[in-house]
Design a protein around this nucleic acid. Structure first.
Length: 129
DNA sequence: ACAGTGACAACAT
DNA sequence: TATGTTGCCACTG
């Protein structure tokens, strides 16, 4: 299909974020070897909105990705920020009223190199996921 | 092929 | 601390 590997890689990493933890767009980009692709990561997650009817992506916990400051994106505020905050709270992640999360306590430690390698292999030139 | 866009991030005022 | 600016990358008409 039209989807590129990068999307799948982002989704794959996001799926590994454990319940009760969060990470940032930039950190995901870093894990995928594209340290400057934070915006692209956000773009990929935003695209999930157009895939809501696709069961393939129902299990992507997009709410566990916030910006580098541990804050839910402002641009998202008007339509999805509150939902994201609610989903996180339901998972046991405290979110302040100004949409801030304490990264000292809830930041995901990330994947190990071999786990990332596994993702890169599985997402290589395939429409299958 | 090319210019525009966005759920980012770092730096500058 | 709070805005504004600039660089990035992948995706889209």
């Amino acid at each position: 299909m039209s989807k590129r590997n990068f999307y799948e890689q982002v989704y794959a990493v996001t799926r590994r974020i454990p319940k009760g933890k969060v990470t940032s767009y930039g950190r995901i980009a870093n894990m995928l070897g594209a340290p400057n692709a934070a915006r692209a990561v956000g773009y990929a997650l935003r695209a999930l909105k157009d895939k809501q009817n696709d069961p393939t992506y129902d299990d992507v916990p997009w709410q566990r990705v916030v910006n580098s400051q541990g804050r839910i994106s402002i641009a998202n505020r008007d339509f999805g920020a509150q939902l994201q905050a609610e989903l996180l709270r339901n998972e046991g992640v405290p979110v302040s009223e100004d949409l801030q999360i304490n990264l000292d306590n809830y930041l995901w430690s990330g994947l190990h190199w071999f786990e990332i390698d596994d993702i890169l292999q599985k997402t290589k030139n395939s429409d299958n996921v």
